[in-house]
Amino acid sequence: MSLADRCSAVRVGDTGTIDDVVVTNRDAAHQSRSDTVRAEYAGLVRKAAAGDEQAMEQLLMRAQEVAYRFSLLVCGHPEDAEDVMQDALLNTYRHVSQIKDPDAFRTWLYQTVRNACLMKRRRRVDEPATMTSIEQGGVTGDGDAAPVDVADVSNRSADQQLIDSWLGARLRRALEALPAGYRVIVVLREIEGLSTREVATVTGLSEANVKQRLHRARMMLRQSLEDL
């Protein structure tokens, strides 16, 4: 077992159990999935830029899927999803022919979707006055959690059912309870499978800050899941 594998295996109370192997393999699978998805995006971008219509269609569908998930899971504003998807669609179509580094497409897409969500929020006339940005929401300057005004989630039964089918009701509720500035990190890193560096690029935070927030978010999630 390599050093990295050995350290990522959680060996609590005993050693060499099946659980240890499962955790080690899960970490390796997470990294592998991240690399695979990034390579898939890059491949589609190259083909689409070369005029492959099928690749372009797949890319545009993926862009809209990312936009939809981000709207629901990170922003908590499913009513914005349609507009954010449209933005992702048009920006992706325009961007593909100009892109110089296909490997960077995935982070560009998440940045674009995040910005579209932020712009959509700013344009809303009924936006609560205390609403803060996705990254800063609920997080103080030193990284601590702080109260944040979030969207009313009382009339979202259909969306909640959909998210529950993805995540399970407990995890959905625990995610909703996270400050927005932590939720974005968990969703991008743990659910969407981006690397720490990619999350830092998308959010504009340093890698150290991403790691710090991820740690605190995991601790909060664990506590919420225990309490639910």
Partner: peptide
Amino acid sequence: AGLRDTIGLCRGAAI
């Protein structure tokens, strides 16, 4: 152990 389960739950989400 709780963190390990939490991370597993997130990464196992069936999106």
